[in-house]
Design a protein around this nucleic acid. Sequence first.
DNA 1: TTAAAGTTTCAGAATTTTCTGAAAGTATTA
DNA 2: TAATACTTTCAGAAAATTCTGAAACTTTAA
Lengths: 183, 183
Amino acid sequence: MRMTPMIESFVCHFGEMGSRWGFNRTVGQIYALLVISEQPLSANDIADMLGISRGNVSMGLKELHSWQLVQTTHRQGDRKDYYQSRGSIWDMANRVFEERRKREMDPTLSLLRDIMLDEAANPDEAFAQQRIGEIHDLLENITEWTQSLQSLSPEKLNTLMKLGSGVGKVLDFKDKFMAKKAD
Amino acid sequence: MRMTPMIESFVCHFGEMGSRWGFNRTVGQIYALLVISEQPLSANDIADMLGISRGNVSMGLKELHSWQLVQTTHRQGDRKDYYQSRGSIWDMANRVFEERRKREMDPTLSLLRDIMLDEAANPDEAFAQQRIGEIHDLLENITEWTQSLQSLSPEKLNTLMKLGSGVGKVLDFKDKFMAKKAD
DNA sequence: TTAAAGTTTCAGAATTTTCTGAAAGTATTA
DNA sequence: TAATACTTTCAGAAAATTCTGAAACTTTAA
């Protein structure tokens, strides 16, 4: 694959976004390249196309590997490793969510839990503890909910997303039905 | 409020998390302090408690203000500005989501849209464009959906979250009902 | 109008993150 | 076993981000 202005702008942007999405520029660019390339690419291809060092590519691929976002393939009579993006777009989104949950939610939840186990030493701490409790409960709810959403099939998730705020109506409806059933 | 080990560990952690959540360490710490403080704090209080410069506090508060996460109050016969966290925990979570959407999704969606309007110059670009289209559609779905969720009342959202993956059953049920109604 | 009490800005220092490239490591083949 | 073709690591260089503090600015009240 050759770098064209279109491909370059996509790759660049993914690089910039990378840092917002939890990985660094290079990692973002490498992944972008792999996603839009029909053929697997070698580490050298990637280094050349992005104009970055071979070592940097190796580290980036290592990270993408740990996120399970790339896979390695080989070719007959060629010792090089070739890299390919892995799974569907949904899989990729799932991985990113999961990884972010691990980085952004889990450590916080664990600290908040610890704090709540402490005895408040004075009224300030008692107030703080109460607020911390609220934050903990909210984060825990969100975490559990997103986890359960991820266990839903892509089709169900799609239905749910298409429903948009209409999901409110479905909930009302369910309540009514449950009430009737209790008669 | 005095710094105690409990309060300090909470504040420190929020600082570290800050960078993952889209704001820098100082901003995270300032916000943490304001959230768990029952009384509003002056900029000097904050600088002293966190051991950082007055200028840094000013910049941090400015950013929190732009996120609409703090509000300024005053006291009779006192010229100082006092700062307070704003809104409920839900409001805070909403703000963070919204801000992140603005930073992480909107620019990407807009770039992807632009790319899709271009004419593919060769087969590589045609393939790339197709993948980019998939990514665009997924991101757009997620964006619209999260927006519509945010417009739901906190109670409805809570019901929905409590439902967890049980939401799948409710969807099935709704389908069945719709089918019957069509008879 | 002026002094006092406060806030904001911003250039450069300090710190953190990322990147390079040479050296070390690991297959594979002859 | 040695030569070859490739990958990985990591110390230090480069770049990006964050923080400080002095100076400029704003508001209030006497």
